[in-house]
Structures are given as structure tokens and as C-alpha cells.
Design a protein around this nucleic acid. Structure first.
Length: 125
RNA sequence: CGAGUCAGCCAGGCAACCGCUGAUACAAUUUCGUAUUGGAGGAAAGUCCGGGCUCCAUAGGGUAGAACGCCUGCUAACGGCAGGGGCGCGUGAGCGUACGGAAAGUGCAGCAGAGAGUAGACCGCCUCUAACUUUUGAAGUUAGAGGUAAGGGUGAAAGGGUGUGGUAAGAGCGCACCGCGCAGCUGGUAACAGUUUGCGGCAAGGUAAACCCCGUUCGGAGCAAGGCCAAAUAGGGAUCCUGAGGUGCGACCCGCACUGGAUUCGGGUAGGCUGCUAGAGGUGUUCGGUGACGAAUAUCCCAGAUGAAUGGUUGCUACGACCUUUUUUAGGGUCGGACAGAACCCGGCUUAUGGCUGACUCAAUUU
RNA sequence: GGCGCGGUGGCAGAGUGGUUAUGCAGCUGACUGCAACUCAGUGUACGCCGGUUCGAUUCCGACCCGCGCCU
């Protein structure tokens, strides 16, 4: 698995894919900024989907900013996340939080996620 | 230095690393690689107007409805813009202005007030009559009959203003001046302005962002328009309505086009391509015009995503604010950079918002 | 992205150019031994900013919210 790229095959692009993750989310991690749902897929790589609602972040600039930051975090940590379909949901009142805090938050959440997924794999096997 | 008015400009820069995406080329093959190159705004926003484009008939006629409304121009078009006029606001630079018609008709004006629309008599003023009081004449009080719009008071609004004559008291009732209306003349393309001209003699109150009248404009829907391909399925069953019918042109009638239509039962798909970015395009120069704008010419190609790209981290540096050093036209440190993200494309308007520059006005002070 | 509808007390819900009804809820009093029911009284509203008008919740314009429809 090379590098830190983020091509289209690493994204969830269809409603069916989102639905499977929502209906059978094996792993859940959250803090007061985000909620992460994840589930194992049959692929060699992870896939990312983002749910940033207009209700929680009314302005398009804010939504785009959050999405870019989340994609960057996924991109840089994707080697740890292979074989997982991940959906990240944003919670409200994110507009005042700056980029650095979000990065720190996400790093913590992703490490939690990795730990839980390993535990899940072991319990399954 | 302070308070303001108007106009214009910018939306920090460079580099490194990690990424996204369009186009082109080369490799390749099943969607991945390499190289080059492009990649948000002044408001991309609100969707308030106007157009292009697409379909409905090549968008036709009439009615209804809607919008607009000083004049002249600009424009593809506009409810926009430019120049000019009237009115209003401001000491001023300047700003605002839905600004046609109330002499075609209908309506409305609560409360207050005498009266609210072919005006009106509550108080007041005046005359006359009767009674009473005082009395030389005559005056006063009360009651009644009239006259009167000068004064008071009500109201958002009370049917010209000042003076003078006149009168019982008054009154455009007459006159002078001012104001007003109509006509003429002069200037101006026009709106309109001026007038030592003539006439009228004070009506024709307000409200048209009330109905309305006059003039001008407007067919409807919207790129989720529309077109193509693929996949799936049934060319299915039942009931009803009819041929002077039904459907479409999404208010109605005409007119035009098409030819069965509607309801229901059971079942299925909603994936891709295109539309899609070369345009009333940008930039520069010259010419015409007070200006909006137009013409000519040269040059450039300058976003095209679709769970939705245009970013993240770091360093240097410019700018601003604050703190500090005292080697003071300098050095060091900290913090900050607004509003906001294209979704078919343009022209405007409105709203949000950080800063810079220039011109001008007012006030105070200095020279 | 486009198109359309609405905003009136704590809640529902009429209305119109001239002091905004009504019901439920709340509070006070009466009735009761105490409550309920009932009766009487009471307070709180036209989303925000401008304009037209003597006067605007209503008419006009801009803004802010909320809701619906079209793939």
C-alpha cells in the first residue's frame, strides 16, 4: 500500500455503501466533536465517508474546511486503517474550533479506532 | 488634528514537503503511472429583477392578470445605469426621491370637533323684536328671529396671505402687492424654467404603495430544462367514458397540433453519457461621446466538481495592533488578517465584510 | 441547484388601514371540610428594519427565521 494518496477508490461514493456501514457498525468511537462508525470490508484498503450536516454547520465554508481536514487525517493515517469502511459524523458547534484542535482530536480518535478494530478482529477469530 | 461626503483600488507574497481535480501528451492496460499546464469571489451569497439557452406550435389573436410610470439617452434586456428637471433633507461637500391622472367615475377619513366635503353657527361679533333693571339720551341682562367665516377652540387636514376700502358686523364684496390657474411669448430635443404680456378672480381640499383611468411592457416552464445510450419489464388483467369526444399548448376563450382516454390490480427501473463551459468573454491601445456606452484593432484561452476538487503543515518575509529595549528614520517579542466557497451562463440590484489611496466640505487652531 | 408557502400571547387559532377576537394553559377570588366541576376577574402578542399614510399587524420594499415540492 503505497504513500499517502487519496484516490477515488478510497471513498464511499454510493448510498448503499453508507447504508451498510450505518446498519451494521461493528466499531464506534466518539468524542464531543465527532462520531466515527466503522465496519470491516473485504478489501485491502480502507474507505472513508463523511457526513457533515447543514444543521450542525450552516455555512458552506465551514463544512468544506472540516471535510478537508478530516480527509487529510485519514490520508496520513491510512496505513493503519486498511480493511475498514469508516463514516465520520460531525457534531454541532464546530465553527469556532481551529484546525490544530481538530487534528489533535482526530489523531486520538483514530488511535482509539485502531485499537478497537484489532480487538474486534481477535474476538472474531 | 477632529467630524463628515464622494470616488477608485486590493483581498499579502515566496519557497519546501504531503495531497485533490480538469485538459493535453506518452506509456500502458482496467483504471493505475509519468510529464507539462489550468484550478473560486467581490460579493461565488440572497434569488429580488432582466436576458441568453432548452422544451412546450415557428409563440399566433383576444380577455383576465402582473409589472412599470418626470424628461432625454445607454443597453440584448431591465424595476438597472448615465445626464438633466421638479420636490424634500443637510451650514456645506452632497444625499434621497413609486415623481402620470383627483377638471371620467366609485369609495375612505376612527376619536375629537359646530362643521370632514354641492361646507359649517358651539363660543364670539352685529342687527331686529319682546320682557326686565337702571335711566336724560341710552346702556345692560334674559329669551327669540336673523346676518356673519374676521377671532377662539377641535383635528393630520377647516375652502389663499398681508394691507386697505367697505360694512350693522363681516366677507375676493371691491382694490393694491404676493401667491395660484389658463393662454400667449422667450429659452430648452424634452421634462421644465423665465415673463414690466393678457385673461380669470380664488376655484379645482387629501388619499391612486384604495378601486380605477391613461400610457408602455410581459405566452408558460425551467439545466432536477432538454437529448442519447444501456438495463428491466407485459405488447398484462379488470372497470368506466365516449367520437358534436379526448389529450397537449399549466388562468380562460379562440386557434393550432395529435388520436382513443381515464381509474385501478400486480410487477420493475431510477445507472451512465451529453447539455458543460469560446462567451452580449477578458486584457491593452486608439477614436467618438459631458457620461452611461459604442466602434476599430492587437492579443489571450482563463474552474468545471458530482458523498461533490481548488487544501494541509512548516519556514522566510511584507502589513497592522500591543508590549518592550534604549545603539531611537533602529532592534526584539507576542498576537492578528474580515465577509465568505462556483454547480448552465451572463447584465444589474440588495445584503455581509477587512484595509489602502485620492478629491472635496464643515469646525477649531497655527502660520 | 431551482420553484413555492408561511411567521399574531406559554400553546392553538380568527381577523382587519383606526384600542387584535376566541379556546386551552397560568394566576387570583368565590363555591367546598379539602379538592374536582362551575362562576367571576386578571396578565402576557402582530418576526426585524425602512417607506407610503394623519395613522400600518394590514399596503410596498429589503432582511432574518421556519416549512414544503422537483432528481
Amino acid at each position: 500500500m503505497p504513500g499517502y494518496g487519496f484516490p477515488r477508490k478510497l471513498r464511499l461514493t454510493e448510498p448503499v455503501q453508507f447504508k451498510t456501514v450505518f446498519n451494521r457498525a461493528d466499531i464506534k468511537v466518539s468524542n464531543r466533536c465527532f462520531l466515527i462508525l466503522a465496519r470491516r470490508n473485504e478489501l485491502q484498503h480502507g474507505r472513508l465517508g463523511l457526513v457533515i450536516s447543514k444543521k450542525n454547520l450552516p455555512k458552506a465554508v465551514q463544512r468544506n474546511r472540516i471535510k478537508r481536514l478530516l480527509r487529510a487525517e485519514f490520508r496520513l493515517n491510512q496505513n493503519l486503517l486498511d480493511g475498514l469502511d469508516i463514516v465520520i459524523l460531525a457534531r454541532s458547534n464546530m465553527s469556532s474550533i481551529n484546525n490544530k484542535t481538530i487534528a489533535v482530536n482526530m489523531a486520538g480518535l483514530l488511535s482509539d479506532l485502531v485499537r478497537k478494530s484489532r480487538a474486534h478482529v481477535q474476538s472474531c477469530s
